[in-house]
Amino acid sequence: MKRKTALFIIAFVTWVFLNWVPDTQHLIIGALASLLVVFITADLFTERQYTVKHHLRYWYFFTWYLPVFLWECFKANIDVAYRVLHPRLPIRPGIVKVKTKLKTDTALTFLANSITLTPGTLTVDINKDEGILYVHWIDVKAKDIESATKIVVERFERILTKIFE
């Protein structure tokens, strides 16, 4: 029930923002549409809710994860621009394996998305039971699993462990 309420609130707030400026007509239709969404997709929603008790998690998220993420994202774009504009295309691609200690779905999703939006790497697949990510790397610097893990995963793993575990 808690999960459904949370999903309803998220869906409704999204609707209100998409239909700014709110009036009665839009709010009623929005409530109906959100109920429909909840009815259909509530089972797919995250398995474990993060209780509001842990305020610190949100602080870590906004003050630590977001700035690091945006900076890495910007560096990634400069990196791609350099590789694409260089006349001889300096790439050395390959798919490597990396390990992660994270366990929960949300944390793994955030880790995979962060890896994709940071310089030179793209998550291809994930093996949740063994904690292994397959990462396409545009400029392979290390083929073995330990040193690749060190370069690709570590800068986000520490932050995400604090936030989600």
């Binding site: 990634a76 774009n77 791609v80 590789r83 694409v84 691609p93 939006l117 030179g120 793209l122 396409h136």
Partner: peptide, 12 residues
């Protein structure tokens, strides 16, 4: 895979 890298990062 390389094309996905470029398009995902830059277009995002």
């Amino acid at each position: 895979y390389n094309r996905l890298q470029a398009s995902t990062k830059c277009v995002t």
